[in-house]
Each structure stands twice: as structure tokens, then as C-alpha cells.
Amino acid sequence: MPAALITGAGRGIGLQAARAFLGTDWTVLALDKDFSRCDLPPSVRRLQYDLTDVAGIGALAGTLGEIDSLVNNAGVLYCEPYDAIPETHRREIMAVNVEAPVALIQALAPQMMARRSGRIVNVGSVAAFTGHPDLWYGASKAALLNVTKSFAGWLGPHGVLVNAVAPGPTQTDMYEQLPQSRKDGVMRSVYAGRVCRPDEVAQAILWLGSACPEYVNGATLDVNNGSYSR
């Protein structure tokens, strides 16, 4: 069975992505710093790890064996005003949302290139295009989409796919952190009159991470229902 490593799999989109891969008979390795609300079956290997420890990622990845699909889903957000963002929060956002995904890609790329197959899916956000109440969250997501393109260029010739999804606001704990003004803005623009469900983003991740044609590479798939037309 092919194996998927999914970060931030303890809840929200990551948890649903883990379920989606399990549903198509993949082995799932779930990484999160907190599994207190995670109801994944015991067959799933849980890796309790705080991705702010970027320096430890290489060693961790070395213990995981063959990974066919990497889903860089973990992300953090605070929504503090731009002139009142504590240094620790900025560091945490950039470490978890950008530096950790890059470290994971770097750690797993050699084995994927050696096999001439592998898929990486980065979870971006519509915030990459629109700006965001949390300045560093928006900046980190724009950076992650850029990282997607750079690595697609480097790994693509070796048979590795690197794509991204860019969800609009999705019904997760993170959504509850958004200011009401942003929630209202979303509801004005989406066609369906509702926010996205985590399992819907998970289906898009699963397709890119397991099934999409190889010519889909370096792409960002919008899952935003019209909240931003790019």
C-alpha cells in the first residue's frame, strides 16, 4: 500500500485528508502536535511533532520509511492587528506555514526522485491572492504557493508532482478565529451560500496526491466557490 504523510492531521482539513486517503486504501502517517481531538483509527501511525522545530524535521523524516505522498497541511493563524503582532507569533507562523513544508519537501525529495515517483500537495489559501487580516498568514500562504512552483521546477523532471490547493474559507477551528467582517465578505461572494467543508478540500487534496494526471504539475487548484476568481 502506498503511504501518505499528512501534517496537521489532528483536526480540520488534515484530519479529513487522512480519512480520504484511508478510504482509498492508503497507509496514512498523521503528524500533529496535538491529537486530543483526533479520532483516526489505530492503524494510523501518529507522529506527535511540533513543526516549529524545523531543524528536527530531517531526522524525523529519516525514520518514516517510504513516503509516496506528502501533504503539507499544517498551518497556524492568529489574526492580530498588523501593528501588534508579537515576534513569537510571526516566527511561529513562518516556521509552521512555510519553513516546515520546505524542510519536509527537502527531506523526502531524495527518496521520491530515486523512485522517479512521488506527489506533494501543499495547502495554500485564497489568502495568498487576497491579502488577509493576519498579515503573516497571508504572506506565508503566498510564499507556499511560490514554493510549490519552485519545487515543481526542480522535482518535476525527476517524475515528482508538486501541486497546491487554495481553499477559500473552510468550516474549521481556524475559520472561527476570523473576524466577522471577513466571514461576511465570504458569504457575499460564494455561489453556494455556505463556507467550504473540510472533506471537500480533502477530496481535492486526495486527487492531486494520488490520482491526477502527471501533466498537472506546478498547479494551484482553487477550491473557493467564487470567493476569489484568479
Binding site: 521546477g153 467543508r197 506546478g218 494551484t220 487548484l221 482553487d222 466557490n225 467564487g226
Partner: peptide, 19 residues
């Protein structure tokens, strides 16, 4: 199969020929 929330999207099948 695509989730119904994927609407108004354009999927690039370009293998890097345009990013």
C-alpha cells in the same frame, strides 16, 4: 468526482509551461 465547491475554477494541465 470534483467536490461541488470547486466552481469557477480553471485547472492548469501545463506541466510548468505556464505557472
Amino acid at each position: 468526482d470534483a467536490p461541488v465547491l470547486i466552481n469557477g475554477a480553471v485547472i492548469d494541465v501545463t506541466d510548468g509551461s505556464f505557472l
